[in-house]
């Protein structure tokens, strides 16, 4: 089967999976459905020949599942009844989003077709990457050599986000030493 057919199958699977995850009442089942959607993304990356991304996405999935389950585990959870105004709001939102989808079809027709990329910036990397950096993997050559400052910025952003999370979770008892998630308030 051609790659496009596989991708259509995987994307349909992911759309159904995310709708189910959003509509389920049980939060644990919803988080697990999102995990399945993420593994679908990983599989799609494999079909698109992006091996590094598939591995990173797989790891991301596992960590995100652990973090999200940590968010609501052991907490009392009440299911709220849907009110009339909420139903009206949902219907209006779905209508507006369908309209956006219909209007966007023309935009996707104007793009270069699937399987025919523009490929202008990357030409230099592909032709000279092996000689200039000595790395066989062009993706890691770009990350760690051509665009190393991007990676430095990425690490800074990640550090700041983790620092923010620890600051939010810090309680007064821990005295700023261990910023872990102490639930004792």
């Amino acid at each position: 089967m051609p790659v496009e057919t596989w991708l259509i199958f995987i994307l349909g699977f992911m759309i159904i999976g995310s709708i189910i995850a959003l509509e389920l009442k049980d939060l644990l089942s919803a988080v697990i459905s999102i995990g399945i959607v993420g593994l679908g993304v990983s599989l799609a990356f494999l079909f698109l020949q992006a091996l590094d991304l598939a591995i990173v996405q797989f790891l991301f999935e596992i960590f995100a599942l652990i973090i999200l389950i940590r968010a609501f585990i052991g907490k009392e959870y009440h299911i709220q009844e849907p009110s009339r105004s909420h139903i009206v709001q949902t219907v209006i939102t779905i209508g507006a989003l369908l309209l956006i989808l219909l209007l966007s079809i023309n935009m996707f027709k104007a793009l270069p077709g699937f399987g025919h990329p523009i490929f202008s910036t990357a030409k230099h990397y592909v032709e000279n990457g092996g000689l200039e950096t000595g790395s066989a993997n062009i993706v890691s050559a770009i990350i760690l050599d051509y665009r190393a400052y991007d990676t430095l910025g990425e690490v800074t952003v990640l550090f700041t986000a983790i620092l923010g999370a620890l600051t939010i979770l810090r309680t007064k008892k821990s005295n700023g030493l261990a910023g872990g998630d102490h639930e004792t308030n």
């Binding site: 990173v56 991301f60 960590f63 995100a64 990640l158 700041t160 986000a161 999370a165």
Partner: peptide, 10 residues
């Protein structure tokens, strides 16, 4: 992808 993980944690 890596930054997304940080955002989710926060």
């Amino acid at each position: 992808i890596v930054i997304e993980l940080g955002i989710t944690a926060m």
